[in-house]
């Protein structure tokens, strides 16, 4: 009984870490541009499938496949801003959001053409069976997922707090006109936000693939759940995304364990709706969404 409970906690936190990373991807673009990038889930899918491509047909070692997959997806994010979003900069935020939906459909279609419809697998990052703690079995990959998620969050926090470029990105988000008057090239900061988000999404995709495989149409669901975590935590709030991701992952895991795994996917949506009804600014939000 208690071992089950702890088992659910471990798997909940693992998937929660993935949701948190997806949510942070939404947050970065949202805080610089107020755009909600519905292609965020596709970045996750692309990360996983690129890693499969580099590790499989190209026989790269895993760590190199990881780096290359994250880099390639970063390039996709760059292209998305340079050739699509950047071209439509005078459009309203709403039309830009719709454009991101279009981009997600294109990315999904492209992935289907390249990788086909079958799910692909990737080797786990370290070999060996699960680690046993009491009766609880912890897959080494779960530790990789939580560890990489933690590293990324620490690095991002340092970037936005300490680096002049991170601060400049926040300045663009806060007041783009004033940022331009101070000499900050807002255009490049927006580009940077797309690249960063794509890379973080891709990293989440690479580390989850050994656990649950990856196929061309996985992005949508991961994207929606990550979006749920982003809204629940308060759009633009990094710490909120982290906590909300964990809550979402745990809720799903308990639901699958104690109720039925059939309801699992509905949990994110129910939490998202509850958040929108009861606390539209999110758990840690600034109150912007309410107004």
């Amino acid at each position: 009984m208690t071992t089950d409970f702890f088992q659910y906690i471990v798997s909940g936190l693992t998937i929660g870490a993935i949701y948190a990373m997806v949510a942070i991807g939404y947050n970065i673009i949202y805080s610089v541009t107020e755009i909600i990038n519905f292609a965020q889930g596709e970045f996750v899918m692309l990360g996983g499938l690129f890693a499969v491509f580099f590790a499989g047909p190209l026989h790269f070692p895993l760590y190199l496949a990881f780096v290359c997959a994250v880099g390639m997806t970063g390039l996709v994010g760059m292209a998305m801003d340079r050739f699509v979003i950047g071209r439509a900069r005078n459009a309203s935020v709403m039309s830009l959001i719709i454009i991101t939906l279009a981009v997600s459909i294109i990315l999904k279609g492209g992935a289907m053409l390249w990788w086909g419809k079958d799910p692909h697998s990737l080797a786990a990052f370290s070999t060996g069976g699960p680690i046993r703690l009491g009766g609880v079995a912890i897959q080494p990959q779960a530790l990789w997922i939580i560890g990489i998620c933690a590293l990324i969050i620490i690095a991002l926090t340092l970037f936005f707090r300490k680096s002049i470029y991170g601060q400049a990105m926040l300045a663009c988000a806060n007041n783009p006109d004033a940022a331009r008057l101070a000499g900050i090239p807002v255009k490049y900061m927006v580009l940077l936000s797309f690249v960063l988000s794509a890379m973080i999404g891709a990293a989440a995709g690479v580390i989850i693939t050994p656990v649950s495989m990856m196929e061309y149409d996985r992005g949508a669901l991961l994207g929606i759940k990550g979006f749920g975590a982003a809204v629940l935590g308060g759009l633009g709030q990094f710490f909120g995304a982290l906590v909300a991701g964990a809550i979402l992952g745990l809720a799903e895991s308990f639901c699958a364990g104690y109720l039925s795994s059939g309801y699992k996917d509905a949990v994110a949506l129910v939490l998202l709706l509850l958040a929108l009804f009861l606390k539209p600014e999110g758990l840690f939000g600034s109150g912007e969404a309410r107004s």
Binding site: A171, N174, L181
Partner: peptide, 26 residues
């Protein structure tokens, strides 16, 4: 040429120090 825009347009969600730092961005 530096402009102090109408309505001040400070970075309201950032600290005072970060505002000055951004002023020195160039």
């Amino acid at each position: 040429i530096a402009l102090v825009p109408e309505g001040r347009q400070i970075f309201s969600a950032m600290s005072v120090e970060a505002n000055l730092l951004m002023g020195g961005y160039i």
